[in-house]
């Protein structure tokens, strides 16, 4: 049995190492457990255009992730994109006049939602809506606008 003991120990260590690697990878290198906290509250925002914003995209205030996009739906009446965001309950003191905009990290990076806190005394509650929104900049439109402006500027 003594000889077996070493083997058992070594294979046990191997199993532990393997499981540790699995856990480490799952938590550190995938989106698993990236919910900012277990408990979140939902806020919604309407945008005319969200660009290529996707589910699970981060929601940031001043560059710090405070939550993530839970769902993106289209309002069938107004044709606006309705974005639901889960924000961690520990960030529960976000003023109600906060603005939300769809931003891009880097030139070609992922879309995320940036929140610009306002100064109102009352705070956003679960189910509240953000009214001050700014849609995503769509490159073609920006370029189009620029060209158009340039042309009109020339003619004037």
């Amino acid at each position: 049995m003594r000889a077996n003991y070493k083997v058992e120990l070594a294979s046990g260590i191997f199993l532990l190492l393997g499981i540790a690697a699995l856990v480490w990878l799952a938590t550190r290198a995938t989106d698993y457990g990236q919910e900012i906290g277990k408990e979140t509250y939902l806020i919604t925002a309407r945008f005319t255009n969200v660009g290529d914003l996707r589910d699970r995209a981060p929601v940031k205030i001043g560059g710090v992730t405070v939550g993530m996009v839970e769902s993106i739906m289209l309002d069938p009446v107004t044709f606006e994109a309705v974005v639901q965001m889960g924000v961690a309950t520990r960030f529960n003191e976000i003023p109600s006049d906060t603005g939300a905009s769809v931003l891009t990290s880097g030139v070609l990076g992922d879309r995320y939602i940036g929140l610009e806190p306002g100064g109102a005394p009352d705070m956003l509650q679960d189910g509240d809506e953000i009214f001050i929104t700014q849609s995503a900049l769509v490159l073609e439109q920006v370029i189009g606008k620029y060209l158009f402006n340039a042309k009109t500027g020339e003619s004037e």
């Binding site: 699995l22 290198a29 989106d31 698993y32 990236q34 995209a57 992922d110």
Partner: peptide, 18 residues
């Protein structure tokens, strides 16, 4: 790290690979 944590999906990528 944040690229990994937002872009690599637990279900599709990690569990699929497993």
């Amino acid at each position: 790290w944040s690229k990994l944590q937002t872009g690599v999906y637990f279900g599709k990528d990690f569990v699929g690979g497993l």
